[in-house]
Write a protein that binds this DNA or RNA. Structure first.
Length: 424
DNA sequence: TCGCACGGCCAC
DNA sequence: AAACGTGGCCGTGCGA
């Protein structure tokens, strides 16, 4: 973390040397908002209080990608009259955007984590049962929002290290919420897709786009590939139809949150009609999901509440009221809570099983953290593989014998490593 | 000095 | 006005 902080600080200093013709003198949000207004730079988004937005997406729109091989200049280029000045403006705005990202890493993660470490350099958060859906939350610090994958470029997760002689077991559910959606809606298409296995989002893309389905059926591309079998004999769907798969993936997650055609068109920069067509294509394959959402909202309106898989309920104040925004929000919550809360039900059952596991207790493995669909255990390194198998077994079968099983399997991916970063 | 609202951003 | 659900936390500005 210290190395990352040093590297980030150096980058901030470097980026700070760039100025927008002396106009943007600081990365403070208020000043950027002010300059965007006074220079009358085009801004697509405004905040709810009427100022131009200065978030990363807005800055990226202005900057473009001036550092790429053929540089792509954003809307600031023309606003500054093009030429050298326009290019410089785009590069400055890109640097400003990078500074924001570095600042977030430093002030939200790298610095507070060092402050909150105990005398043995370990971090202890509080885990709370205080959410609307039955999830846990984490505070002081929040260990459930640590940067992951490509965002974790300072290897913050590499600072989470097992004690000497010990190892981490990190296990997470694959597509837990989508499996819950398949189960609760009894959607034959989704249940079948999970039964067949392979890349779920690729399967969704097949269902949504005829040309993708034909390419898989005639062998032009493969749905998925097990690399332990060597190199694939044909290109993969995710490579050949990357944009189709990305849209399918976005749609898979968005549907569970109640996203509208309006929101989709904004995100994708397409017309409302095109967004509607995407939604239509998704639902065409999954009519049970649409019906379930309608039924669930109707029931929520009638009762003022919605229920999770195990029957926990959430009241939805305002769903019967006159305020349209509140009502719409509560309707989306009504269809999201059974899914998100149902996933929390399953994880809670799994954690009870894990806590009661004699094997894990005898092997000396302790649960350190839960991140919604993931758990982290720590124990003797030489027993890590055995512990990993037991963690997977508990998570795959969280239900007691007297509780019903699901229409879909629960798939668990688990790794052993000495740091959180390595366990990805 | 404190609490709050806001804009923004990280995770799942 | 917003249009994607659940959280926590940061810096800034502002009023008590």
């Amino acid at each position: 973390a210290r190395e990352a902080a040093a590297a980030a600080t150096a980058a901030v200093v470097e980026a700070g040397g760039v100025s927008l013709e002396g106009v943007i003198v600081d990365s403070g949000r208020k000043e950027v908002e002010f300059e965007l207004s006074s220079l009358q730079l085009e801004h697509a988004k405004t905040t709810k209080s009427g100022w131009p937005a200065t978030d990363a997406a807005a800055l990226r729109e202005l900057a473009g990608r001036p550092s790429e091989d053929p540089p792509v200049f954003g809307s600031a280029y023309g606003a500054f009259g093009g030429g050298e000045v326009g290019e410089e403006a785009c590069r400055a705005l890109e640097a400003l955007c990078q500074m924001g990202a570095i600042d977030t890493m430093l002030s939200n993660f790298i610095l507070p984590l060092q402050d909150l470490a105990d005398g043995t350099s370990r971090i202890h958060c509080s885990l709370n049962l205080n959410t609307e859906t039955g999830r846990l939350s984490s505070r002081t610090p929040n260990l459930q929002n640590q940067p992951a994958l490509e965002k974790d470029k300072y290897l913050i997760r590499d600072a989470f290290v097992a004690a000497p002689g010990k190892a981490l077991v990190v296990a997470d559910y694959g597509q837990l919420e989508l499996r819950l959606l398949a189960h609760m809606t009894a959607c034959t298409s989704m249940v079948e897709a999970f039964k067949l296995g392979g890349d779920f989002h690729s399967r969704t893309a097949m269902g949504m786009f005829d040309h993708v389905r034909r390419a898989v059926e005639d062998g032009t591309c493969l749905l998925d590939w097990d690399y332990s079998q060597g190199e694939p004999p044909a290109p993969l769907l995710k490579d050949l139809f990357g944009s189709e798969r990305r849209r399918a993936k976005t749609l898979n997650f968005s549907i569970a949150y109640g996203k509208t055609a309006h929101g989709l068109s904004k995100d994708w920069g397409v017309s409302i009609d095109e967004a509607k067509e995407m939604l239509r294509a998704w639902y065409a394959d999954r009519p049970e999901v649409l019906q379930w959402q309608k039924d669930t909202i109707a029931s929520a309106r009638a009762t003022g509440a919605t229920r999770t898989l195990l029957g926990r309920y959430r009241t939805l104040p305002g769903i019967q009221g006159r305020n349209g925004a509140v009502r719409a929000h509560m309707e989306r919550a009504a269809i999201n809570t059974p899914i998100q809360g149902g996933a929390a039900d399953i994880m809670t059952l799994a954690m009870i099983k894990l806590q009661r596991s004699e094997k894990l207790r005898e092997m000396g493995f302790r649960n350190l953290l839960q991140v919604h669909d993931e758990v982290m255990f720590e124990g003797p390194a030489e027993l890590a593989d055995e512990a990993r198998a037991e963690v997977v077994a508990c998570m795959e079968r969280p239900f007691d014998e007297n509780l019903p099983s699901l229409l879909v399997d629960l798939v668990v991916d688990a790794n052993t490593a000495s740091t959180w970063y390595e366990a990805k």
